[in-house]
Design a binder for these strands. Structure first.
Length: 674
DNA sequence: TACCTCATCTTC
DNA sequence: AAGATGAGGTAG
């Protein structure tokens, strides 16, 4: 037994500086609370106490990286705070060393990371990993440069086209907090506008963070910003570790005051942040792929709130989430007047399946670029104007449904949607494929009704209209079949209606009372499909020169679809309202706060049994997720969102502390619910 | 009695 | 999660 412990002395001898037995604690506040950087089970997400040796006293400031022995192994960690006393005096160990005196975790980012971890039911260590890049010693050794002087307040003529634009800039120039949701006019030079806003705030001596979806946007906004002021830094994911850390340090050390970057920049430690910007918040690039999957917009909302900074949510289109910020009074909107819009909007033509031109044009059905669009493109090229062609994804076909009960057909491996690779729902028998994982399904068996529908004449699988009820009244089903027959073989463009026929499912009233009742199975939906389509269209059409002499936009989609109307009329606000009321009706985020809990049936049910939900809490499901996994949805009102996160966290903690075997995965307000 | 396996417990 | 400890079985 004693022999195992002797391993300690070996490592001390190896470090060769001070014999551990001779260490003594710092004179004051000798207890460090440390967040260790190891993947820990959820119930261990709290700081561990370490003794600070006297020789580390000066360097051991809150926010520095430290090296500690945890579970017998050397690991990295962040020193969160120093205190006098510890509750675990019998087990406490000494900090091995302070990695460097650089304070990399500022109080602001620490608080933000804690809040994000709580909101998304994740561990602090996981969030810190997103917030603070890995250390690069050479970059750290370089001397800090002097901070750039604040620029002069820039001219911002471009903002006069928007009704509250000038007032907004005045507010920022006077250092007032001013949140806003801004819809850029089509053709807007939005990087220049964002640069003007950033320089206005920088002129007051405050810091700015601008988060954009990808590196191309980083480059554009960076160029626009550097044209107006010094002290701008770009942070992309594709920088090497050394360069990345160097730039990040220039922000930390106050050399740079304006940060332009992709989602990693959300946590950039700018000194005294005055303005936080997210461009095109509907772009899926803003959703973090790593646990606990925070979303840039939501993190910036939180950060603005905590830091007293202003938030700007900007895009051509508008998301339901941004609409909610407007509706709740959190952020006033900045939009152009109708006249300004008329002058700026490009000519948009919609050609649907039922449009005469396309219906007659057999080739246009199969080609991905219909003839009329082709002609427009040829004319434009002849006139020396650029052409952008955006086409539906290659091989795009509707998802499939069980021919018996019409529930969406799921991949048995990953629960993704099944579709036919060839592009038609009849014709040569080709096996269905999963659109997510690519698995081939030869013997479809329905997850809902359990039947393998008869092969041969009756198809087992048929085109699925998203949002249709599992069982429709006979008349509706007959109607659907006719419609399917008519549209057979046609390639459907991206915008799809949420409800094919009939009334939208009524929103269930959020329950009041104690024990949550389990409701029926939630049906798979993609509430963001139309929003995503409009966003892509508007972002593309936003590049088109307006006016009669300008460019043309051809959309090969049914002109009666609300999404298409929103594009033709260029009315993102109307569409966002529509989208938000749809989600409100369904009881989906952002109208409510929702958590998904995935795992094997027993595990999911164990967590659900442990859940102590607040008054508005509801449990939906669980539903099968393929591979003997299940998913439950849990929702509460937005007001009780924090309580929901706490309740889920408690339930998961109980489970991991008990060492129950099967893991569960929790996601808060996921982008795609199925 | 030396040496396995499996379950349970702790992590500052 | 993963290493440490302990109970209990078993080959020899």
């Amino acid at each position: 037994m004693g022999g195992v412990r002797s391993g300690r002395h070996h490592s001390v001898a190896a470090s060769g500086i001070v014999r551990r037995g001779e260490r003594h604690p710092a004179a004051t506040a000798a207890v460090a609370r440390v967040s260790v950087d190891v993947p820990l089970p959820y119930h261990l997400d709290f700081p561990f106490d370490y003794r600070i040796p006297a020789e580390c006293d000066a360097d051991a400031k809150p926010g520095v990286r430290v090296r500690v022995r945890f579970r017998g192994k050397l690991t990295d960690g962040f020193l969160l705070e120093r205190v006098e006393h510890t509750e675990v005096a019998d087990k406490i160990k000494y900090i091995e060393r302070v990695v460097s005196p650089e304070v990399v975790l500022t109080p602001e980012i620490h608080g933000l990371a804690r809040a994000v971890a709580d909101r998304y039911v994740g561990s602090l260590a996981n969030v810190l990993r997103l917030a603070i890049p890995p250390r690069h010693a050479r970059a750290e050794a370089r001397e800090a440069e002097d901070p750039a002087p604040p620029p002069a307040r820039p001219e911002a003529e471009g903002w006069q086209r928007y009704t509250r634009g000038p007032a907004y800039l005045d507010a920022l120039a006077n250092g007032r907090s001013a949140n806003a949701v801004w819809q850029a006019l089509p053709g807007e030079d939005w990087p220049a506008r964002l640069a003007e806003v950033a320089a206005t705030v920088a002129s007051t001596g405050k810091g700015v963070v601008i988060v954009v979806p990808d590196y191309r946007d980083v480059n554009r906004v960076f160029a626009a910003c550097t044209a107006l002021m010094p002290g701008v830094v770009a942070l992309q994911a594709d920088l090497g570790p050394g360069e990345r850390y160097k730039r990040w340090l220039s922000i930390l050390r106050g050399t740079a005051r304006v940060v332009v970057g992709t989602k990693a920049a959300t946590f950039a430690p700018v000194a005294d942040p005055g303005l936080l910007v997210v461009w095109d918040d509907g772009d899926s690039g803003h959703a973090e792929q790593l646990a606990p999957y925070p979303h840039v917009r939501d993190v910036l909302v939180q950060r603005a709130h905590m830091a007293g900074a202003s938030l700007l949510v900007a895009a051509f289109a508008r998301t339901a989430e941004a609409q909610l910020l407007v509706d709740t009074g959190w952020a006033p909107e900045i939009v152009a007047s109708r006249e300004q819009l008329r002058a700026a909007a490009p000519r948009v033509t919609a050609i649907g399946e039922t449009d005469a031109q396309l219906a007659r044009d057999e080739a246009a059905r199969t080609a991905r670029l219909p003839a009329i669009a082709f002609e427009a493109a040829r004319d434009a090229l002849k006139a020396g104007r650029p052409v952008l062609v955006q086409v539906p994804r290659r091989g795009y076909v509707p998802a499939l449904a069980c021919a018996n009960c019409r529930v969406r057909a799921q991949c048995r491996r990953c629960a993704g949607p099944l579709s036919l690779p060839g592009g038609s729902t009849d014709g040569a028998p080709r096996p269905a494929e999963c659109r997510w994982c690519g698995a081939v399904e030869v013997m479809f068996r329905c997850t809902a009704c359990g039947l393998t529908p008869p092969a041969g004449r009756g198809r087992r699988l048929q085109a699925h209209r998203r949002g249709t009820r599992p069982r429709l009244p006979r008349r509706s089903r007959a109607h659907l079949r006719r419609r399917r027959g008519a549209g057979r073989g046609a390639r459907r463009p991206r915008p799809r209606r949420l409800h094919a026929r009939g009334r939208a499912p009524r929103r269930r009233r959020l329950r009041r009372g104690a024990a949550p009742r389990r409701l029926g199975h939630p049906r798979p939906r993609r509430p963001r499909a139309t929003e995503e389509a409009l966003r892509l269209w508007m972002t593309a059409a936003g590049m088109v020169v307006p006016g009669p002499q300008g460019g043309r936009v051809i959309v090969t989609a049914e002109s009666s679809l609300p999404t298409v109307q929103a594009l033709v009329r260029w009315d993102p606000v109307w569409h966002a309202n529509l989208e938000l009321s749809g989600r409100t009706e369904l009881g989906f985020p952002p109208a409510v706060r929702m958590a998904t809990i995935d795992g094997v049936a027993d595990a999911v049910n164990a967590v659900l049994d442990e859940l102590r939900l607040p008054a508005t809490g509801e449990i939906l499901g669980p539903v099968p997720l393929g591979e003997d996994k299940e998913r439950a949805l849990v929702r509460t009102s937005r007001a009780e969102g924090r309580a929901l996160a706490e309740a889920v966290a408690d339930a998961v903690r109980v489970r991991t502390a008990r060492k129950d075997p099967d893991p569960v995965r929790v996601r808060m307000d996921p982008l795609e619910l199925l």
